[in-house]
């Protein structure tokens, strides 16, 4: 230890630390007890009469409503109806969106016509279009699928073509220089390169689909989680309403987890 020496007559102080922070991490094991505590406080407040059970039903009665719904088989019927609409509508909207996004991404005509079209139609609230959809598609399933599909369509288009635009042109040039066919350039270079954007778009479009599910099920739906929530609201069954909200939220979590899984699988190269 010869190095750290200093002249005795000079002032010496330690270098003050000023780094650190601004790097939030997820602390493990803290979230579950926190939520449990929140639920317990909520339940306690309800039991103590601090909040009216009508205004905010306690977790226990939400759970009871949920298990009643499950026991009667209604929950399954609601879920089946909603899942069908979500999946079918989302697939419809996403495939159409991918197609247009690809066209905008690779063709001048597609870009010239597509971008203003999307810019003009994207901001239209789909809920406001519902009466029109009903005139066009009737009050049955088609209008519900159309609502959800349209909600999923636009974010998919935008993310798909933005994703394609983000693929470095040098990679396309590379593909051409090796004599790859048009098709191979689209499927081996552009689409895989746009996949991160497309999956980010899927996250958005699936959330939008979930939000629109409730709107879609406003009209002419006997079953469906959205219909359940609306009906519970109208019947002042706030416990059922909250049960429906819980199911919607679980649905959202599940979808998000599935997309996360897809991302880990398909984007392992990142």
């Amino acid at each position: 230890m010869a190095e750290p020496a200093h002249r005795a007559d000079e002032p010496v102080r330690e270098v003050p630390f000023r780094g650190g922070g601004f790097a939030p991490r997820r602390l493990r094991h803290l979230a579950p007890p926190f939520f449990l505590l929140l639920l317990l406080l909520w339940e306690g407040a309800s039991r103590a009469g601090l909040v009216s059970p009508l205004a905010l039903p306690p977790p226990s009665s939400i759970l009871t409503a949920l298990s009643d719904l499950a026991a009667s088989g209604d929950l399954r019927r609601h879920l089946e109806a909603s899942l069908y609409r979500l999946v079918a509508g989302w697939i419809l909207g996403t495939s159409a969106g991918l197609l247009l996004g690809l066209l905008i991404g690779i063709s001048s005509l597609g870009r010239t016509l597509g971008i203003p079209l999307v810019a003009a139609l994207f901001p239209i609230p789909k809920i406001a279009m519902l009466p029109l959809f009903i005139l066009w598609f009737g009050i049955g399933e088609p209008s519900k699928l159309a609502t959800i599909a349209l909600g999923a369509f636009f974010p998919t288009v935008i993310n798909a073509y933005a994703g394609i635009d983000n693929v470095p042109r040098s990679l396309v040039r590379m593909g051409q220089s090796f004599g790859l066919s048009h098709r191979a350039i689209v499927f081996e270079i552009l689409l895989p390169g746009a996949l991160p954007g497309i999956l980010a778009g899927a996250r958005i479009s699936s959330s939008i689909a979930l939000v629109l599910l409730v709107a879609a099920e406003m009209i002419g739906a006997q079953y469906g989680i959205g219909a359940l929530v609306l009906q519970a609201g109208n019947l002042m069954r706030t416990d059922q309403l909250m049960a429906g909200v819980v199911v919607l939220s679980l649905l959202g979590l599940t979808i998000s987890a599935l997309i996360g899984l897809a991302e880990r699988r398909l984007l392992a190269w990142r």
């Binding site: 009903i134 009050i139 002419g220 006997q222 609306l230």
Partner: peptide, 14 residues
């Protein structure tokens, strides 16, 4: 066949 339509204007349109 009962069809919930939420609002009176919707009922009229339907």
């Amino acid at each position: 066949k009962l069809v919930p339509l939420q609002s009176v204007p919707n009922m009229i349109a339907a």
